[in-house]
């Protein structure tokens, strides 16, 4: 049997917001170590990797590994029924064809449960090797969201160039061009507002704006975002999810023809 209890159901709501525009359905793999999800968008240009560790839940039990194929639009409907302060419990029997979501109000005067049918999904798992990236950039997540939004007005692509001095985001199109440079922050009073760059080698890569904008739906999950880049490999955009885990997005770079 599988049972996972999360006092802050808002975390799960935010996770769902962070993936539902990129994916229509996904398999949640539940094991003793937690809940994992890996899925590519329908065009196979990007990949989402979610990890929620079992020790981050308030209660967690998973007797047998369980793969839950879930339609994310259906799950969104159910999560809309949860209050932000509700306590959430997910429950499924071994080999179940449905999962139950239970929501309790903080004062425990309202209890609701919703059963959702599971799907059988063909899933293509990709092995992503541990990589030492040439550039690792940490910046405020709201700043990154703003940059992606602003630059998407200029063109379909964003060039991200990283040097020791800073990181530059550029876009160009019919109306003209745009460049946004961020320098590493000198004095960091507030860690959440810092821009930090670890660079082994300069990197400049081109990415589709559209996907970067999808990734920024994860902004409410974390005050900081981490971008990892190396030449000719996918960009990694990582948001920490409190003390429970992380969501990583991988985006294949564009190549000049």
């Amino acid at each position: 049997m599988f049972e996972a209890r999360l006092v802050q159901s808002s975390i799960f709501k935010k996770v769902l917001e962070a993936i539902k525009e990129l994916l229509n359905e996904a398999t949640f793999d539940c094991s003793d170590s937690g809940i994992q999800l890996q899925a590519m968008d329908s065009s196979h240009v990007s990949l989402v990797s979610l990890n929620l560790r079992s020790d981050g839940f308030d209660q967690y039990r998973c007797d047998r590994n369980l793969s839950m194929g879930i339609n994310l639009a259906s799950m969104t409907k159910i999560m809309k029924c949860a209050g932000n302060d509700d306590i959430m419990t997910m429950k499924a029997q071994d080999n179940a064809d449905s999962v139950t979501f239970m929501f309790e109000s903080p004062n425990q005067e309202k209890m609701s449960d919703y059963e959702m049918k599971l799907m059988n999904l063909d899933q293509e798992h990709l092995g992503i090797p541990e990589t030492d990236y040439s550039c690792v950039i940490k910046l405020p997540s709201a700043e990154f969201a703003r940059i992606c939004r602003d630059l998407s007005q200029f063109g379909e692509s964003v060039v991200i160039s990283c040097t020791k001095e800073g990181v530059k985001f550029s876009a160009a199109g019919d109306i003209g061009s745009a460049n946004i440079k961020l320098a590493q922050t000198a004095n960091v009073d507030k860690e959440d507002e810092a821009v930090s760059i670890e660079m082994q080698e300069k990197v400049s890569l081109t990415f589709a704006c559209r996907y970067l904008n999808y990734f920024t739906k994860a902004t409410p999950l974390s005050p900081q975002v981490c971008l990892s880049m190396s030449a000719e490999v996918p960009l990694v955009v990582e948001y920490k999810i409190g003390e429970i885990g992380h969501i990583r997005y991988y985006l294949a770079p564009k190549i000049e023809e």
Binding site: M40, S43, S46, L47, P253, K254, I255
Partner: peptide
């Protein structure tokens, strides 16, 4: 002209 790569060209099926 830019061409969009797919994930499968970077990572193998596991």
């Amino acid at each position: 002209v830019e061409e969009q790569n797919e994930m499968n060209s970077f990572y193998q099926k596991s």
